[in-house]
């Protein structure tokens, strides 16, 4: 994180380091919403469980969307549920992230021929990270959450909030310049 000096309305502000500090804090308190729709919900529970203890990364589940940063689309989404998920997403505070966990949330998965299933979470929500698997292993979900951490790390959101961020460049992708985990 290179320190940058930004000109504020009243004088100089060292926004870069503050951004870095804030991102560091945000990165290590990534709270996900305890919300699962289908099979992946069990693996979501196991991820919070003792084996892949996500508390190690400061990832704690919250029961209310108002306190959550990450919405994990864990499982098949039916049309009846889609509008409720949208409602949950709208209740979350900015900045918020969405993870599509498993094949059903990615593309509808094995329910391509079903009349009642939404073919992919990205048809009605902006999805940040897609995790393959049916259901993905807890470690897989952990990796997805870590990708969100990497994305947070390079987010200039304070600059953006200050109105000083040049918005002609698209938001950095989580994979851009990131290192693979292994």
């Amino acid at each position: 994180m290179t320190p940058t000096i930004e000109r504020g309305p009243e004088g100089g502000f060292a926004v870069g380091p503050i951004d870095g500090l804030l991102n560091l804090a945000r990165k290590h308190s990534l709270w996900y919403l305890l919300f699962g729709t289908a099979c992946c919900a069990i693996e979501l529970m196991q991820t919070g469980g003792p084996r892949t203890d996500t508390d190690r990364f400061g990832m704690v589940f919250r029961s209310t969307p108002r306190q959550a940063d990450v919405l994990v689309l864990a499982g098949t989404i039916s049309y009846k549920m889609a509008s409720r998920i949208r409602l949950l997403y709208d209740q979350m505070a900015e900045p918020k992230y969405v993870i599509a966990m498993g094949s059903c949330a990615n593309t509808g998965g094995l329910f391509q021929e079903s009349y009642a299933v939404v073919k992919g979470g990205d048809l009605f929500l902006p999805v940040d990270v897609y995790i393959p698997g049916c259901p993905p292993r807890p470690e897989s979900l952990c990796e997805g959450l870590m990708l969100i951490q990497q994305k947070i790390e390079r987010e200039p959101w304070l600059k953006k909030a200050w109105g000083k961020y040049k918005s002609d460049k698209p938001d950095p992708m989580p994979t851009e310049g990131c290192e693979p985990l292994r």
Binding site: A100, N106, T107, G120, D122, V127, D128, V129, Y130, I131, P132, G133, P136, R137, E139, S140, E143, G144, L147, M173, P174, T175, P180, L181, R182
Partner: peptide, 12 residues
Amino acid sequence: EFEGSMSDVHRL
């Protein structure tokens, strides 16, 4: 292998 998280679904 299970680590295949992507930010773009087409890459999968």
